[in-house]
Each structure stands twice: as structure tokens, then as C-alpha cells.
Design a protein around this nucleic acid. Structure first.
Lengths: 337, 337
DNA sequence: TTGTAAGCGTTATCAA
DNA sequence: TTGATAACGCTTACAA
């Protein structure tokens, strides 16, 4: 007790392997070996060293280890916007999975433009990887990563560059199947409410809808674009529903669809009686009774699982060619169709 | 062009200060000085070095710098749960602010129990700080941080330990004022729907409600606890509203209040006609027309601003005593009271 | 099985 | 103004 106070009052001297070595009367390398599972070291000595280390609160300095090994165990994650519920949920799952394999996710929120320069700056660390989750990342950064030898894994929008891995949901298939379902249920006057046209996911999803309509000899009556938020989705849906006699409104994501639901309510349109409304993603809110939204699930766990697997493979063999993994979307039938 | 291909095909040699020094025909120290604003170096030489460095894509290795300076520029952020919309929004804002000052937020999602061991492991890095945002962090970790000399900043739940900084919303005052407002508007039969009782924020908010009621010579008719989620909030509210004749239901957070709103709807109770429902936090959803929730804002930007300021002060003077900053809550009157 | 020593990429100190 | 050199804390040949 007094001992503790004594050492605390003393100028804070950093505890290193040498400190432990002195305490245990062994060499610095013995301490290092005690912490590397495979290394030669008598069981008795290892035990003693580990005990002393634990008492002193010693752990090998990750910066020094990283410098030595040329690997930081740091993973940059560029996420479109944490204001987007899907991205936020995705990030949560990804963080938990990375934490579990002792890789450390550094979060770059792509909301404002400065995010790109932040990534650039972050590349001073020998990152284990850069993971892209939506958002718009400047193309030159991809090149910088390649030059710096930083592996890149993109999710949600395929990046075609050598040795870049991709994980992507089958967007078109998902919404094509959903549209077929709506057609089979007798819907024929379709509207499509997309996200920003430059977003890969929005374009893909639109293609799915148009494809299914085309198969049935149909065309959308009306289309509009939003920005994947509830507010803008509501405004766009209001216009779409007022100016057109739709019996189905397909939205490019759930937030937009939830906006559309309020628009329908405002216009005293019955959902699904007068018009069906469907979304994409299956965010947590979609399941709330008040929305009970029929949607296409963009499954987070499989996507994150694929990212983790790709990361581990890439770390094991940095030179291997890029891989692409597709994740199946899942139709979730609830009450709005 | 061919040059680029040539160097690319070659075994990837890491670009270091030495590489640039050789290219520029100067010493390694000159390169280092070129990157340190204050250092002595002829303008001409600095310019040349910087140009060559840019062409070669060189940036000083952050691991080496960190090892040298004993500072990593890494900040661990322990966040209760990314499934919680408030925590997710908070994290987004915090990440953007840290990115801006070139500190790198490592996200630890406290959802599962392993989060504590992850933090322990992460302390191998000489972290600039550990920021706590909600969730339950094992008490011994606080002590380990102190031992390792890692500054700690807690937000949302005060940690009283030497040299720990705190940022906290005036929870009690916020809900006390809100309750007074409801009383002034003629409400008298109050229910309180809390979060997990062991959560500091829930206890504080409850105290505020009880305080205001007491001032008016009132007591709550019924109380229940939830877990800060919509689902559990809805279930608890349903019971509360069915079994008691309440004219005001004060909820400890917005998610719970939104659950309460659906419960009221299910029971054909008019809000605010039959019963007022209010929340706490002012998450983005609270403003949606479909909810239009009267609530108490737990302002994110001021809290994050305070955290950043405290971090910078702490880094400048690691030994200074801990500071506590309180953030004023703000009554947001919408349509449910 | 153990210890010594070299090197990972920087920056700061000290001479020149 | 510049360049050599010594840390920073670790791991790993290499030698004993």
C-alpha cells in the first residue's frame, strides 16, 4: 500500500521489458519470449516473468512491436455517415468483430469533405488495412493506398483496382425479386424513389426494379431521387404520390421508405391498401410496429464476416489478387405491401 | 510511366526518410527537419526535399514518431452501444472532431462483455486518452489507465478518480424543468419510465422528475424500468398505461418514449390529449413528423466540444487535477405534451 | 535454454 | 545550416 503510493509519487517512469527483466533478474529477451507463445523459455521462468509483469502492469508497447514487425494492427474504417442508421449499425458490428480479433478500428466519418485529407494523414501509420463502407472516397486515395502497400477492402461499392477486395450485396437481385413479388400480388402502377444517382447502390437497386418491370412488360410511372434520408424521402414521396396514381412505391433504402410512409399518411393514402411501400436495408426501425416495413434485408453480419475473412487472408498473403464476395439480399415481408 | 511499373514490380521496399535523403542527396536529419515546421533548414533545401517526398509518397512513419515521442495520437473511445441512436450520433460527432485535430478514434463497442478485455489489450498502445461514452466499463480498467498514465475523459457518467475529466449533461435539471412545465400545463397523474436503474443517467433523470413533483406536492402514480430501447420501452409503457390512469408519462430517453408512443396508439390513447409523453436526448427521430416528440435535448456538439477542449488541456498538462464540465439540457417543445 | 546485439524509422543532441 | 549519433521499446538471429 505505502509502496504503491511511493511509486506513484515518484516521477512516472514508463514500465518496459527492461524494468521487468531487472525485477525478475533475467534478460530483456527472456521477457519478450515470455510474451510470445511459441518461444523457447523454461516454463518456470515464463511463469515468474508473467507474474511479475502482471503485478507491474506491464504489456509490450504496441508501437515498438509495430515498428519492428512493420504492422500496426490498426485498421482505418471510412464510413459514409454515422447519421445514416444503416452505416452506424454496420460500423457497430464491424467494430465488435475487429475488436474480437484484436484489430483496432479507427473511425473516419465521411460526412464532411475533410474526411479525405484525414485518411491521407492517417496513412502515416502502417495500417493493416483500409476498409471502405459507403461514402465517397477520392479516387487518388485508392492509388495512394496501393503505393503505400495498404490493403483495401471495399463494402457496398465495388472498387476495381488490383489487389482490392470487395464485399457487396446483390442489390439488383434483391429489389428485382421484391418487385416481382409486388407484381405477383397485383401491383402495376410503380414509382421508384432512389438515392443520390451517383451512388452505386441506388443505381443497382433501380436497375433491379426496372428489370423486373420490364420482364412483366411494365415501366415505372414516375421516378424521383432523394438522398437516403427520411426528411428528403418524405418530401420526394409526397410529390410522387400526389402527382401520380401509384399502387406501389419502391424506395432505394429504408430511411426513404419511412419518409414515404409519413407522406402517404399525410395524403390519407392507405398503406398497403392504396399503395404498397417497400424499402431496402432492413434497419432496426423497419421492424417497429409503427412502421412494420416490408423491405429487402442488406445483411450486416454476413458482410462483416466476409470482410473479416478477407482481411485475414490478405494479411496472410498480401500479394494475392483481389477477391469479390457477393452477399444475398433477403426479402422481408411485413405489413406495407 | 514505365518507371512506375518498374518500381511496382520490384519487391515493395518501404519508403523511409533515408530513401528520400538518398534521392535528395542530403542527410536523414535534413529530411526530418523538412517535416518539422520550426527546424533550421534552408528554404531551398526544404522545398526540394518536400517535393521529392511528395513524389515518392513519403510521410514520416507514425509508429516511429510515436515511439520516439511517447505519444501515439490514438484515442480509444468506449461507447455503450452503437445500436443506441444517441450513442451512434455522439460517436459520429466525436469522430469528426477528433479527425479534425488529427487524433485518431479507436472505436470499442461496449455491446458485449468482451469490450472490457479489448480495452485492456488496447492499452498496449501509449494512448493519448481513453474517452468513455456511456456503457459499463469495469472499474479496474480505470485504475489500469491511471497506472499506465493514460488520461481518461468520461462523458455521461461521472468517474471520480484523480485526474479524470468529466463532461456531463445536467440530467436532473433538464427533466425537473420539463416536469414543472407539464405540471404548469395541468398534468398531475405522472408515470416515470426509466432506463436500467444502475445507469447514472437514468437515476439522475428520475431524481429530476421526483424533485419537481415533490415541489408541487405530487408523487408519481407508477414507475417502471426499461433498457433504453424502443422495444422494451413499448412493452413497459403498455403495462404502465393500461394499469394506471396517467395523464403524463415521462421517459428517461427518447427511444423509450418512442416505444411509449406506439403503446399509447395501441391502447387508443390520444397523445397529448389523454396522456403527455416526453423523452430525453432529442435524437434525430424525435423530430420526425410521425413522432414529433417533446423532449429534453442532451446536446451533442457542446459535449463533444468540451471533450476536445479537455483533451487538449490534459495533453498540455498531464498532471493537472480533473475537471468537470456540465452541459445544460434544453427543453424542446413539440407535439406530445 | 539463455543472453547479446542488431535493427525497425524517427527525432533531438551535439559537433562541425 | 548541416550531418553523425544516440535513444525510443521491442523482437529475433546468432552465439554461448
Amino acid at each position: 500500500m505505502t509502496d504503491q503510493n511511493g511509486s506513484q509519487s515518484k516521477r512516472h517512469r514508463r514500465v518496459t521489458a527492461q524494468t521487468i527483466a531487472d525485477l525478475a533478474g533475467v534478460s530483456r529477451s527472456a521477457v519478450s519470449r515470455a510474451f510470445s507463445p511459441g518461444a523457447y523459455l523454461s516454463a518456470e521462468k515464463r511463469h515468474r516473468i508473467l507474474k511479475i509483469a502482471a503485478e507491474a502492469g506491464y504489456q509490450p508497447n504496441a508501437l515498438a512491436v509495430g515498428l519492428k514487425e512493420g504492422r500496426s494492427n490498426l485498421v482505418a474504417v471510412f464510413v459514409g455517415s454515422m447519421r445514416n442508421p444503416y452505416d452506424a449499425a454496420f460500423m457497430g458490428c464491424l467494430a465488435r468483430s475487429l475488436n474480437a480479433i484484436r484489430k483496432w478500428p479507427i473511425l473516419i466519418d465521411g460526412t464532411d469533405k475533410s474526411a479525405n485529407s484525414a485518411v491521407e494523414e492517417l496513412m502515416r501509420y502502417p495500417l493493416d488495412a483500409l476498409i471502405l463502407r459507403g461514402g465517397s472516397m477520392a479516387p487518388e486515395i485508392v492509388e495512394h493506398c496501393a503505393r503505400a502497400g495498404i490493403p483495401m477492402i471495399s463494402s457496398g461499392r465495388p472498387v476495381s483496382a488490383p489487389r482490392v477486395d470487395n464485399v457487396c450485396c446483390r442489390n439488383a437481385e434483391g429489389l428485382r425479386e421484391m418487385t416481382r413479388l409486388l407484381i405477383a400480388r397485383g401491383r402495376s402502377r410503380f414509382g421508384f424513389l432512389g438515392g443520390p444517382p451517383e451512388f452505386y447502390s441506388s443505381a443497382q437497386r433501380r436497375a433491379g426494379v426496372l428489370g423486373a418491370l420490364d420482364e412483366a412488360g411494365l415501366r415505372p410511372i414516375a421516378e424521383a431521387t432523394g438522398d437516403y434520408t427520411v426528411e428528403v424521402g418524405a418530401a420526394a414521396a409526397r410529390r410522387l404520390l400526389r402527382e401520380n396514381d401509384l399502387d406501389a412505391l419502391v424506395c432505394a433504402n429504408d430511411a426513404t421508405a419511412i419518409g414515404a410512409l409519413s407522406a402517404a399518411r399525410d395524403l390519407s393514402l392507405d398503406v398497403p391498401g392504396d399503395v404498397a411501400v417497400v424499402g431496402f436495408d432492413d434497419i432496426a426501425m423497419a421492424e417497429w410496429p409503427i412502421f412494420n416495413l416490408t423491405t429487402v434485408r442488406n445483411p450486416i453480419e454476413p458482410a462483416v464476416g466476409a470482410i473479416i475473412r478477407l482481411l485475414e487472408k490478405r494479411l496472410a498473403d498480401p500479394g494475392k489478387p483481389g477477391e469479390s464476395i457477393s452477399i444475398d439480399a433477403v426479402i422481408i415481408e411485413r405489413g406495407t405491401h
